[in-house]
C-alpha cells in the first residue's frame, strides 16, 4: 500500500506534464491532434525513442552510459542484411520465414557479444563507460560504413518489415513489441535477483562487492541487457525505414540520455525506474508530433527537446522559491 503511494508521488510531475502538453497540443491543433490517425502515428513512432531511452537507462543504472546504443542498432540491422543476402544469395526480398528467423537469431547473438564486450571492458578492466562506449560506437559505425559503403540498403522481406510497420487489429506492431519488451525488462529489473543487485551495484559498487554481489557479472549482464534494446530497435527500424543505413537515428543518441534523465534516472547510478523513462518518452513524442502538426520546422522539435530539461530546472527553482516566500509570509502573519 505504501509502495503505491510512493510511486504516485514520484511520477506526478511527469503525468501532469503529459496531460498539460496533451491538452495544449489538442487545443492548438484541434481534431488533427486527436484524430485516430494521429494517435496511431504517435503510437507508431514512440517506440523508437522509448526503446533507446530505456536502453540508455539500463546502462545508466550502474552509473555508466551506453553511447554505442544507436550504432549498435544500425550495425545490427546491417548484420541482418548481410546474413539474409548470404542466405538468399543476394535476393533478400525472397527470403522465407525460416531464413528471416535465422538472420534475426544471428544478429541477436552478435548484439549480445557486443554487449558482453562493452560490459567486460567496463566491469573487469574498469574503463570509464563513456570512453569505452565512445570507442565502440565509432568502431561499430565504421564497420557499418565499410559494409554498406555509406549507402542505404533496402529490399527487406515483408515478414521482417512487418515488425516495424505492420499492425495488429489497428495497434502498431512496434507498440506491441515496445510494450512486450518493457514488460519483460520491468520484470527483470524489479522482480529478479539480478535487477535488485544491479540497482545495488549502481548505488554503491564497493558496498555491493562486500555484500556478496558479483559486480563484474552484474555489469556485464547489464550491458548485454542494454544491447538487447539495440537489437529490438533494429527490428523496428528496418520496418519503419524499410531499409538500413550506418547513420540512421544518430541524433537520437543524446536525446535518449535526456529522456532517461527526464524520467528520473540518476546518471550517477542506482536510481531510475522504467515507468519514468516511458513517461518521459511519451512527453518527447507529444512535443514532436504536436509541433509537426503545427507545421513547425522539425528542428523546432530538437530545440524543444533541449529546452525541456532547462524548463524543468527553472520550474523546480521557481516552485522552491514560491514555497519559501509563502512560508515566510505565513511566519510573518
Amino acid at each position: 500500500m505504501t509502495k503505491l503511494n510512493f510511486k504516485k508521488n514520484e511520477y506526478t510531475p511527469l503525468y501532469i506534464t503529459i496531460i498539460i502538453l496533451f491538452v495544449m497540443m489538442s487545443l492548438i491543433n484541434g481534431h488533427k491532434f486527436l484524430s485516430l490517425n494521429n494517435l496511431q502515428a504517435m503510437a507508431y513512432q514512440m517506440p523508437m525513442i522509448g526503446l533507446l531511452a530505456i536502453g540508455m537507462m539500463v546502462s545508466e543504472l550502474s552509473g555508466g552510459i551506453n553511447l554505442s546504443l544507436v550504432a549498435n542498432a544500425n550495425f545490427n540491422g546491417i548484420f541482418i542484411y548481410v546474413v539474409l543476402s548470404w542466405l538468399t544469395k543476394g535476393d533478400m526480398s525472397s527470403a522465407n520465414l525460416s531464413q528471416v528467423l535465422i538472420a534475426i537469431s544471428f544478429s541477436f547473438l552478435i548484439t549480445m557479444i557486443i554487449g558482453f564486450i562493452n560490459g567486460y571492458l567496463i566491469a573487469v578492466l574498469k574503463i570509464p563507460a563513456l570512453l569505452e562506449t565512445l570507442g565502440m560506437m565509432t568502431l561499430l559505425k565504421g564497420l557499418s560504413l565499410v559494409i554498406t559503403e555509406g549507402y542505404t540498403i533496402s529490399g527487406f522481406p515483408n515478414s521482417l518489415t512487418f515488425l516495424g510497420n505492420g499492425d495488429l487489429f489497428g495497434v502498431p506492431m512496434s507498440l506491441i513489441i515496445f510494450i512486450l519488451v518493457c514488460y519483460i525488462v520491468h520484470i527483470i529489473l524489479d522482480r529478479t535477483v539480478f535487477g535488485k543487485q544491479l540497482y545495488f551495484t549502481g548505488a554503491n559498487q564497493t558496498a555491493a562487492k562486500y555484500s556478496n554481489i558479483n559486480i563484474e557479472s552484474i555489469i556485464i549482464r547489464e550491458y548485454m541487457l542494454s544491447a538487447f534494446f539495440a537489437f529490438s530497435c533494429s527490428l523496428i527500424m528496418i520496418g519503419q525505414m524499410n531499409s538500413v543505413k550506418a547513420t540512421y537515428y544518430d541524433s537520437y543518441l543524446l536525446i535518449a540520455v535526456l529522456a532517461s534523465f527526464l524520467g528520473g534516472v540518476d546518471p550517477a547510478g542506482g536510481f531510475g525506474k522504467i515507468m519514468g523513462t516511458i513517461l518521459a518518452s511519451i512527453i518527447l513524442q507529444i512535443i514532436s508530433t504536436g509541433l509537426n502538426l503545427m507545421r513547425l520546422d522539425p528542428f523546432m522539435v530538437t530545440a524543444m527537446w533541449g529546452a525541456i530539461i532547462i524548463f524543468v530546472l527553472f520550474g523546480k527553482e521557481l516552485v522552491k522559491n514560491l514555497h519559501r516566500i509563502l512560508n515566510r509570509r505565513k511566519r510573518m502573519a
Binding site: K196, F200, A203, N204, A207, K209, S211, N212, G270
Partner: peptide, 16 residues
C-alpha cells in the same frame, strides 16, 4: 562506503 548504500532503505540494505 563498504558496508551500506546510504541512500537506500534500511530494508534493502538488510537483504543485500
Amino acid at each position: 562506503i563498504q558496508g551500506l548504500v546510504l541512500n537506500y532503505p534500511q530494508r534493502d540494505n538488510l537483504v543485500a
